[in-house]
C-alpha cells in the first residue's frame, strides 16, 4: 500500500516542515483544540496519516491546509511535539508551487496578493490588498459599510507606503525564488 511515491512525499514533508510526522499517535488532541477543525474537511491528524499513505492529491486539494490559522494551539499541546502548523505551511507551499487547484481558493489568493504587495512596495497596504482581493474574488459589497466607517475614523489611508529601495525588495524576492 505504501509505495515509493508515498515514501518520497513523507520525506519531502519531513524535510520541509522539520516535523516528525511519524511520531503522531493519533490521539487527536490537536483536533479537539483546533479553533477551525470543525470547518476543515480533513482533521489535522488525518493529514499526517494521508501523507503516510501518499494521498498527495487529496491533501493538497483539501480545505484543511488553507484553513489552518497557524494559531499553534496544536503544536503547543502535541504530546509528540509535532508543530502541525509547520506541516500545513509545507503543504501550502507545495500546493502553490505545483499549481494545485484545490479548495479555499480565496485564502490562497489573499496570501498571494499579500506577498505580491510586499514585493511591489516593501510593505503591505491594506486598502490595496482589499481592493485587489475583491477584484480577484468578487464580493464587492462585502464589508462596504465597515470600510466607510473605518475610513471616516482615519484608520484606512488611500495612499500606500513604500520603502525607499523597492528595487532591493524585488531583488530579494527573486533571490529567494532562486534559493528555493
Amino acid at each position: 500500500m505504501i509505495d515509493e511515491s508515498a515514501k518520497s512525499l513523507l520525506a519531502t514533508i519531513r524535510e520541509k516542515s522539520g516535523q516528525d510526522i511519524l511520531a503522531c499517535y493519533h490521539c487527536q488532541k490537536c483536533v479537539v483544540g483546533c479553533p477551525v477543525a470543525e470547518f476543515m474537511d480533513v482533521p489535522p491528524n488525518a493529514i499526517h496519516r494521508l501523507i503516510q499513505y501518499g494521498r498527495k492529491d487529496e491533501i493538497l486539494k483539501s480545505a484543511t491546509i488553507w484553513l489552518c490559522a497557524a494559531c499553534e494551539t496544536c503544536g503547543t499541546r502535541c504530546p509528540n511535539d509535532i508543530d502541525i502548523a509547520r506541516v500545513m505551511d509545507a503543504l501550502k507551499q507545495i500546493a502553490v508551487k505545483e499549481g494545485v487547484k484545490g479548495k479555499e481558493r480565496d485564502v490562497a489568493v489573499m496570501h498571494g496578493l499579500f506577498m505580491s504587495g510586499i514585493r511591489k512596495r516593501g510593505r503591505m497596504h491594506e486598502v490595496s490588498l482589499i481592493r485587489d482581493l475583491k477584484l480577484r474574488t468578487g464580493g464587492f459589497f462585502k464589508d462596504i459599510r465597515l470600510g466607510i466607517k473605518m475610513f471616516r475614523l482615519g484608520k484606512l489611508s488611500l495612499s500606500a507606503e513604500c520603502v525607499k529601495n523597492v528595487k532591493d525588495i524585488k531583488q530579494m524576492f527573486d533571490r529567494a525564488k532562486a534559493i528555493e
Partner: peptide, 22 residues
C-alpha cells in the same frame, strides 16, 4: 529606517525562504 513588512501569515504560508527572509 526603511523597515519592510514581516510577511505575516502569508509569508509562512507561501514561501519557505521569505517567511524567514522578510
Amino acid at each position: 529606517p526603511d523597515w519592510i513588512c514581516c510577511g505575516a501569515s502569508s509569508g509562512h504560508s507561501l514561501d519557505e525562504v521569505l517567511n524567514i527572509g522578510l
